[in-house]
Design a protein around this nucleic acid. Structure first.
Length: 821
DNA sequence: AAGTAAATTTTTTTT
DNA sequence: AAATTTACTT
């Protein structure tokens, strides 16, 4: 195959080294995907491995789809009997479980339902309520996080309870919810995302026959983005490679960005000890970016302590500097990005742009700005098609028809469209179901069959509604049965779920713009089903697909402008990248800054973002930003401070943070830290900052005024708590620190005094230093983050989030809070 | 029971 | 600021 000639020596090694365990450490832009796809093609075309013996695993459907496509293109001219399985971890597990879950003997059957995050949260909420626990403190999200973490550690609820026994009350409650949750899922024959992995691993551990089957089936296994695997995924791989060890994993520890989901970098770092015969190949030549971009990425990542030294290099020498822009507010930032895109589109229409942000909520401003300038864009993430209410409703009907024990699906649709079943009836139904430890579907049957209906206090109207409902689901069920034996196309059943249930009729009757839009979405769902009928999958696969596709899967590589989170951008590349919202608290995210481990993950995220760029990189941040509808001053991200100034070109209007940084650095090079004269006072890291320093009496008075205090009233202990004074007095004399520190706090105070609109000014005058965003210490709860401040004078109420205790509402006057940094 | 008004919460990142 | 949840009418 002439394609091999396009590979460099280590890439070629990685392709041809087909036997035994192989670790490919592939830096950003080093042609990783090419290597994997060509390797698969090589196995088939040159080594004559039957395609069905090959398994490639990815994390996202997007990656799997792309890989399928590229392998397909490489093997275009071959006549193949089968196709290699290229799948996500979760789809692979569904496939295995749909075949063999009954061997697990845990009561689950092949027709199990998959609960997505939404469904899971609903169950958790119901459990918490059921147990009479505090729903305010035990939010479904936090409980889910705890349970999911436990599951990913391999704990069931008993182990969790045992481990947590002597710990705080909250975790004891979580243990109870955990148990109730597991029971409910069992009753509903449902598995959540974690369960898909857990049950598969358990099944492989338990059943030798199953293990044997898949070991014989998949003789060559490839895993993409191996740095993102968690312990369960590792266990899965271990079982699947038990007999033969033709396992090739590809990844980059510097791009490990899913630690929050249990991913363990140790899997890739310890590969050689997990698979003792392993060979290791490093791909270090970057084909994507300019040297400047690589230098910028490297400047940031080298601040991480735990990392494997890697030296990416490129033949694409030089390149232009990274552009930098400081905006006054988020709208200004978006306007800047939009106008830069417009300008570049004028000169070369074909180029592609990505706007990358840390959180989905940042997309809005950019959407508006682009729309105003009539620039077409594509947005990945946020609301996905399958997350729309009407789509989920219809899917729920289908899920229910396939698995009547699925309480969550049932509750979703039992009164949609309205059948006259209100809260009272539904509460009664659920109560009855809990009493008899049965599913709601069974409970309905029992109530309707029981002539002596006094047990259930339901109105005759409600009973009739239930009868209708049962009838509808019954009919739908018949059709699904026909569909699974492939006598009836999937699209037929989908249409039935839309029409038979009266769902479409209700929307037609409403005849509003919104209702029509929904009807169109349902039309789209039918289209998707028609597409599906062309492939061999049945209704079941269609529904599974709907549960397992993520919003990142709708990336359109032909779009000129794509907006998405940095996470979603992993694996992609763009000629021009805008990395926006480079502000402290946004990126790195405020929930990560207190934990060095999480901060390092944020830094890797920055590394991923920057290395997406091929030719041109823009870095932007805003001086203020609205958070929860409240205008907040925002300081530049510490990551900006980690970039060498000579790599950056400032496009800001007027003086910017960067121009101050330049000034501050003009006398002393920050690349020469040894020139620093250490002394007790200056030992503490300090930051660069713009704006006023508090180095005279007037400025000090101003400072306190901004905080609503009189300088004379302030006692001695409060000043050091702020610790602004000594530092700022010596500011210009000292060498600037690489790692930014509290100087920015002063910029915030200064800039809010100078630039804050008057309504905000007023607010800050009446408050002291305990405002949203600061940290405080509480005698009992310890350190906490102030989220909200309400009221005035003696009635100031604060909402404070204390790690481990949740959110507390406190009266400032009595709470005895101390502000800390 | 259903619709409206008011109160409350929300934002990390994802299969 | 927006979306979701709860409280209050009819």
């Amino acid at each position: 195959m002439e394609i091999f000639e396009t590979l460099n020596p280590p890439q070629l090694e990685a392709v041809k080294n087909t036997e035994g365990p192989l670790l490919v450490l592939a830096g950003a832009g080093s042609g990783k995907t090419r290597v994997i796809t060509i390797r698969i093609a090589y196995l088939i075309a040159e080594k004559n491995i039957p395609p069905y013996n090959i398994l490639a695993v990815t994390f996202t459907n997007k990656a799997a789809g792309e890989m399928r496509e590229r392998v397909g293109a490489l093997l275009e001219n071959q006549k193949l009997q089968s196709a290699p399985l290229i799948s996500t971890f979760h789809s692979l597990c569904v496939r295995i479980l749909r075949a063999d879950i009954e061997h697990l003997d845990e009561g689950f059957t092949k027709t199990f339902t998959i609960y997505d995050t939404d469904d899971t949260l609903k169950v958790l909420k119901a459990c918490t309520k059921d147990l009479g626990l505090d729903e305010k403190q035990l939010t479904p999200r936090s409980v889910y996080a705890a349970i999911s973490a436990a599951k990913n550690r391999g704990e069931d609820y008993e182990m969790y309870a045992a481990r947590v026994e002597s710990a705080d009350e909250k975790r004891a409650s979580i243990a109870r919810i955990f148990r109730a949750y597991v029971e409910r899922l069992e009753n509903s024959n449902a598995l959540d995302f974690d369960d898909l992995l857990i049950k598969t691993v358990r099944l492989l551990r338990k059943s030798e026959a199953t293990r044997e089957k898949y070991n014989n089936r998949y003789k060559y296994i490839l895993v993409d983005e191996y740095q993102d695997t968690n312990s369960l995924q590792f266990a899965l791989i271990k079982f699947l490679t038990e007999k033969q060890q033709n396992i090739c994993v590809v990844g980059d520890d510097a791009q490990s960005i899913y630690g929050f989901r249990g991913a363990d970098v140790q899997n890739i770092l310890q590969f050689e000890s997990h698979f003792p015969q392993a060979q290791v190949i490093m791909l270090e030549q970057n084909y994507r970016s300019t040297q400047t971009i690589l230098d910028a990425a490297d400047a940031i990542i080298k601040n991480n302590i735990s990392r494997k030294e890697k030296k990416l290099w490129t033949k694409n020498s030089g390149g232009e500097k990274a552009f930098y822009f400081q905006a006054f507010d988020a709208e200004g930032e978006a306007r800047f990005v939009a106008s830069m895109i417009e300008k570049e589109q004028m000169s070369s229409a074909a180029t592609k742009f990505a706007i990358l942000y840390r959180t989905n909520s940042q997309s809005r401003q950019f959407e508006e700005a682009l729309r105003r300038m009539r620039i077409d864009y594509n947005i990945v993430g946020g609301f996905s098609f399958y997350e729309r209410a009407e789509v989920k409703d219809i899917i729920a009907y289908l899920k229910l028809a396939l698995n009547p024990f699925d309480d969550i699906a049932l509750l979703r649709v039992i009164n949609t469209p309205s059948r006259g079943l209100g809260k009272t009836s539904l509460d009664e139904l659920q109560f009855q179901a809990r009493q008899s430890d049965a599913s709601i579907w069974e409970t309905i049957a029992r109530i309707l069959n029981d002539a002596d209906s006094a047990v259930a206090r339901l109105t005759s109207r409600a009973r009739n509604a239930l009868k209708d409902f049962r009838e509808v689901i019954g009919q739908l069920h018949k059709k699904t049965a026909e569909s699974s034996s492939l006598e009836r196309p999937v699209s037929d059943v989908v249409v039935a779920a839309i029409e038979l249930t009266g769902y479409a009729n209700e929307l037609r009757l409403e005849n509003s713009d919104e209702a029509n839009a929904r009807l169109e979405n349902l039309e789209e769902l039918v289209n998707a089903a028609v597409e599906y009928d062309k492939s061999e999958g049945g209704l079941r696969d269609f529904i599974d697909h709907a549960a397992l596709v993520s919003d990142t899967d709708k990336y359109d590589r032909n779009a000129s402008v794509t907006m998405m989170t940095i996470h979603a951008a992993k694996g992609l590349e763009f000629p021009t990248v805008f990395l926006v919202g480079l502000e402290d608290g946004i990126f790195p995210h405020s929930r990560s800054v207190n934990d060095p481990k999480q901060l390092e993950e944020e830094r890797r995220l920055a590394y991923v973002a920057i290395t997406r760029a091929e030719k041109r990189l823009y870095l932007t941040h805003s001086m203020r930003r609205r958070i929860y509808g409240e205008e907040m001053a925002a300081e530049p991200s510490q990551f900006l401070n980690e970039l060498p100034l000579e790599l950056i070109e400032d496009l800001s209007q007027g003086p910017s943070w960067l121009s101050y940084a330049r000034e501050g650095n003009s006398q002393l090079s920050r690349s020469a830290p040894e020139m620093r004269t250490p002394s007790i006072q200056t030992e503490k890291p300090r930051k660069l900052y713009t704006g006023k320093t508090y180095n005279n009496a007037e400025a000090i008075a101003d400072f306190f005024k901004a905080r609503g205090l009189n300088a004379s009233k302030v006692n001695a202990t409060e000043i050091p708590a702020e610790n602004d004074f000594q530092e700022s007095k010596t500011e210009t004399a000292e060498e600037p620190e690489r790692r930014p520190s509290s100087g920015w706090e002063r910029l915030k105070a200064a800039s809010s005094r100078e630039k804050t609109p008057s309504h905000l000014e007023h607010k800050s005058e009446n408050s002291d230093s305990i405002v949203p965003g600061v940290h405080v210490r509480h005698l009992k709860y310890g350190r906490g983050l102030v989220l909200r401040r309400e009221g005035s004078g003696d009635n100031v109420k604060l909402t404070v989030s204390f790690p481990g205790f949740g959110q507390k509402k406190l009266i400032e006057k009595f709470a005895n809070l101390e502000r800390i940094t």
